[in-house]
Simulated assay, not measured.
Amino acid sequence: MSEILKEQFQKIITIEPADFEYILGHFTYKKFKKHQFLVQEGQQVTFDYFLISGCVKSYYTDENGKMHILLFALRDWWITDYEAYYYQKRAIVNIDCLEDTEVLCLSNDNREKLCQEFHQVEHFFRRKTNRRNVALQNRILSLLSSNAKQRYEKFLLEYPSLAQRLPKHILASYLGVTRETLSRLYVQK
């Protein structure tokens, strides 16, 4: 379990085994069942979650009850409601499990502590934040400038294994199309 996190760090920084064990001590391990929430709208957000296994979705529900999926997270990905996490606000998004999921949880206090104690950990989180910012920008641009077919094809290209794991209505919501439109795109493929 901790090897996944260690590999994640080592993709970006060099870390001594003793330092990694100390860092790991600032995380807590949790298991969630399918359909359980990591984060629920209106609640305080205590943790950033590093997925060891499983799949989760982050979504916003508008005033009409329509679900807008922001993103997914799989093994080796991080996810939370970042505004609520960083600024001690109540969550505006939900994050729930599409599969049974195991996570390592890092509180903002522990993240700040580790970043103060280890320059390379601060560097790691800055690089992860940069990548997340670019991914979110690309997602917004895709929604604004691509048609449904282009968004679907891009998703298949970037996340082929995820496309097989997601229920069709969830994938349709992520792409901003109806289930019927997704079925037509699926047949065209």
Rank of each mutant, 00 (worst) to 15 (best):
residue 1 M to H: 08
residue 3 E to N: 10
residue 3 E to R: 07
residue 3 E to W: 09
residue 3 E to K: 11
residue 4 I to Q: 07
residue 5 L to K: 00
residue 6 K to S: 08
residue 7 E to V: 07
residue 8 Q to N: 09
residue 9 F to T: 02
residue 15 I to F: 05
residue 16 E to A: 12
residue 16 E to N: 04
residue 18 A to P: 03
residue 19 D to Q: 11
residue 22 Y to C: 00
residue 22 Y to I: 01
residue 23 I to F: 03
residue 23 I to Q: 02
residue 25 G to Q: 05
residue 30 K to Y: 07
residue 31 K to V: 06
residue 31 K to Q: 09
residue 31 K to A: 13
residue 32 F to Q: 11
residue 34 K to R: 11
residue 35 H to C: 06
residue 36 Q to H: 06
residue 37 F to H: 11
residue 39 V to L: 14
residue 39 V to Y: 02
residue 42 G to M: 06
residue 42 G to W: 04
residue 43 Q to P: 03
residue 46 T to K: 09
residue 47 F to Q: 01
residue 48 D to W: 04
residue 48 D to F: 01
residue 49 Y to N: 07
residue 50 F to T: 02
residue 52 I to L: 11
residue 59 Y to C: 03
residue 60 Y to V: 01
residue 65 G to W: 10
residue 65 G to H: 11
residue 66 K to D: 02
residue 66 K to L: 06
residue 67 M to D: 14
residue 67 M to Q: 05
residue 67 M to H: 13
residue 69 I to K: 01
residue 69 I to L: 07
residue 71 L to R: 15
residue 72 F to V: 08
residue 73 A to V: 02
residue 75 R to F: 09
residue 76 D to V: 05
residue 80 T to D: 06
residue 80 T to M: 09
residue 81 D to N: 13
residue 81 D to M: 10
residue 82 Y to A: 15
residue 90 R to L: 13
residue 90 R to Q: 09
residue 93 V to M: 14
residue 94 N to S: 13
residue 94 N to M: 04
residue 95 I to M: 14
residue 95 I to N: 02
residue 96 D to L: 00
residue 97 C to I: 03
residue 98 L to E: 09
residue 99 E to I: 03
residue 100 D to F: 06
residue 101 T to D: 05
residue 101 T to W: 02
residue 102 E to T: 09
residue 103 V to N: 09
residue 104 L to H: 04
residue 109 D to Y: 09
residue 110 N to Q: 04
residue 110 N to F: 10
residue 112 E to K: 15
residue 113 K to S: 07
residue 113 K to H: 14
residue 114 L to H: 04
residue 115 C to V: 01
residue 115 C to I: 07
residue 115 C to Y: 11
residue 116 Q to Y: 03
residue 118 F to M: 05
residue 118 F to H: 07
residue 120 Q to T: 10
residue 120 Q to I: 08
residue 122 E to L: 02
residue 122 E to I: 10
residue 123 H to V: 13
residue 127 R to C: 07
residue 127 R to A: 13
residue 128 K to H: 07
residue 129 T to K: 13
residue 131 R to L: 05
residue 132 R to E: 15
residue 133 N to V: 13
residue 133 N to A: 14
residue 134 V to D: 06
residue 135 A to M: 10
residue 139 R to S: 08
residue 140 I to F: 13
residue 141 L to D: 08
residue 143 L to E: 05
residue 143 L to A: 04
residue 146 S to C: 13
residue 147 N to E: 08
residue 148 A to W: 01
residue 149 K to Q: 15
residue 150 Q to H: 08
residue 151 R to D: 03
residue 152 Y to W: 06
residue 154 K to P: 00
residue 155 F to S: 02
residue 156 L to W: 05
residue 157 L to G: 00
residue 161 S to L: 12
residue 161 S to G: 12
residue 162 L to G: 08
residue 162 L to E: 00
residue 163 A to M: 09
residue 164 Q to T: 12
residue 166 L to A: 05
residue 167 P to I: 00
residue 168 K to L: 09
residue 168 K to G: 14
residue 169 H to K: 08
residue 170 I to E: 13
residue 170 I to C: 12
residue 171 L to G: 13
residue 171 L to Y: 05
residue 172 A to C: 03
residue 172 A to H: 02
residue 173 S to R: 15
residue 176 G to Y: 14
residue 177 V to I: 14
residue 179 R to D: 15
residue 179 R to S: 15
residue 181 T to L: 08
residue 181 T to Q: 14
residue 182 L to D: 12
residue 185 L to H: 05
residue 185 L to M: 04
residue 186 Y to E: 15
residue 187 V to K: 10
